[in-house]
Design a protein around this nucleic acid. Structure first.
Length: 452
RNA sequence: GCCGCGGUAGUAUAGCCUGGCCUAGUAUGCGGGCCUGUCAAGCCCGUGACCCGGGUUCAAAUCCCGGCCGCGGCGCCA
């Protein structure tokens, strides 16, 4: 049988002519043996259809069909017929059957993913993803990445591809993976942060990147990966960090919208906890967030980040008011990286004096975006005054010498700018209501797992 | 990194607390048989497991210690 004659299942069910002979090929989805007749359900990328293999039509094909194992790859040729009993209303009366690749007994239950632990499913990811529910997660991610990319391009952002091998840690040092770079010490980039800024300063003005980021934190939770996809952008000539926040929100909305427009029915079918409408958002300040939380019995000190309990609580309160997305602004200096623009500078320009007396609770021009109570994005305005940067580095206990080229970059004309990073897998997880972020990554990496 | 829970056929589980009655039960898968209209096919027969190492004991799936792995929480973060 020739593969070039192969017809997709969807096409056969819709447009094939009954009475004509066709070739299909795909995976064995089900086999039902009934003595002289064997029903085989074949599955390809476009759908599933029933093959009928009768002993009195082709004894040879019938013999092969009886022995088919689930998930083997087969090709079949036969006459398309109408059949009320068949799934899709049509079936193929097989004259010729070929086993292209025989499948060994399956180690996991593909039909019912909930009957196998996630760890086991991940060990056999290539089988796990044959399940339509699991496969859908990645069709959605593909769609969301496309939507984000197209949105950026439509709005004048340039796609860049930054180094993932870096010479120094971006923000501290503890959470980066060290790698041996010939005879030197290097690291895997935990964020494209510094390079995005370089893109803006180089004159691209607006840049974005959709690429992996690496975090060496040994988290054992349902929402952390050591390698994830970051949807990052950076934009110059902003009036304030609110321009950045608006952009981040629009991108997230655009991603969710695209996923829902294309896959709403499937999402509804497979993910009972998913959101089916484009979420509304609300922007509040850290001060307001603290007041709301305090009113619900959760007190936070003025220099503290929202802990995961606070995030969940805030997410719940805001969701009940109809806002699945809430952006929290003005994070205290103590919780933000050294390059963050403090609110004492920020609006209206940055001068050497404005970053003098930074205290742990000094508000910064920054924000986090929570989607159903989980942080999915972080961003803000960056400090573009090199003198301030040095002060801010020192304030954080870092050594300016380690960031030499970074600081140097701001001495040759750096526009006011800011950006954000959006966690693709986290958006997917919260959109679909997944219980574990590992489900949203093709081959997840956590502190223990390095294969497949 | 810290804390808690766990590891039994291919998969998912019962048994563990209160050691012997376990020749380790059940479901599903897998192998074989019957069956020409099934679609979670059915019926009959069969196959298959106590994570690794050490200890306690007359006796360990069961109790203790260590390791590895898994699940989750926290800190932190996308």
């Amino acid at each position: 049988m020739r593969m070039r004659e192969r017809k997709p299942v969807e096409w056969l069910l819709r447009e094939g002519k009954p009475g004509e002979e066709y070739t299909v090929a795909g995976w064995v989805d089900a086999v039902r043996r009934h003595g002289g007749v064997v029903f085989v359900v074949v599955r390809d990328r476009t759908g599933r259809m029933q093959l009928v293999v009768k002993k009195n039509v082709s004894k040879e094909a019938w013999k092969k069909a009886r022995k088919l194992s689930l998930e083997s790859v087969i090709a079949a040729r036969g006459v398309l017929t109408e059949s009320k009993a068949a799934l899709g209303g049509r079936e193929l009366q097989v004259r010729e059957l070929e086993v292209l690749s025989e499948a060994a007994p399956l180690p996991i239950d593909i039909k019912n993913p909930e009957k196998t632990t996630l760890a086991k499913r991940l060990d056999y990811r290539w089988l796990d993803l044959r399940n339509p529910r699991n496969k859908l997660i990645f069709l959605i991610e593909s769609e969301m990445a496309r939507a984000a990319r197209e949105w950026f391009r439509r709005h004048g952002f340039v796609e860049i591809f930054t180094s993932k091998l870096v010479g120094s840690a971006t923000e501290g040092g503890a959470e980066v993976f060290p790698v041996l770079y010939f005879d030197k010490q290097a690291f895997l980039a935990q964020s494209p942060q510094l390079y995005k800024q370089m893109g803006v300063i180089a004159g691209f003005e607006k840049v974005f990147e959709i690429a992996p980021a690496f975090r060496a934190e040994p988290h054992h939770t349902t929402r952390h990966l050591t390698e994830y996809t970051s949807v990052d952008f950076e934009m110059g000539f902003i009036d304030s960090y609110m321009d950045v926040l608006e952009t981040a929100l629009q991108v997230i909305i655009e991603m969710v919208k695209a996923a829902l427009e294309k896959y709403r029915d499937e999402i509804k079918e497979y993910f009972p906890d998913a959101i089916l409408e484009v979420p509304r958002y609300k922007i509040i300040s850290m001060e307001e967030a603290r007041d709301i939380l305090a009113a619900h019995g959760k007190e936070l000190p003025p220099d503290a980040d929202l802990d995961s309990e606070a995030e969940r609580l805030l997410g719940k309160i805001m969701s009940e008011q109809g806002y699945h997305i809430v952006a929290v602004t003005r994070y205290p200096w103590a919780c933000r990286p050294f390059y963050t623009m403090p609110c004492t500078c920020g609006e209206g320009g940055s001068f050497p004096e404005c970053c003098e007396n930074l205290r742990p609770d000094t508000p910064t021009c920054s924000f986090d975006i929570l989607f159903r109570g989980l942080e999915v994005a972080t961003g803000g305005q960056r400090q573009h005054n090199p003198e301030c940067l040095v002060k801010q580095l020192k304030n954080k206990g870092l050594h300016p010498e380690s960031f030499k080229w970074y600081i140097e970059m701001f001495r040759h004309g750096a526009p006011p700018h800011g950006g954000a990073g959006i966690g693709l897998e986290r958006v997917t997880m919260q959109l679909l209501g997944l219980k574990n972020i590992r489900e949203a990554r093709l081959t997840p990496r956590d502190p223990e797992r390095l294969t497949p």
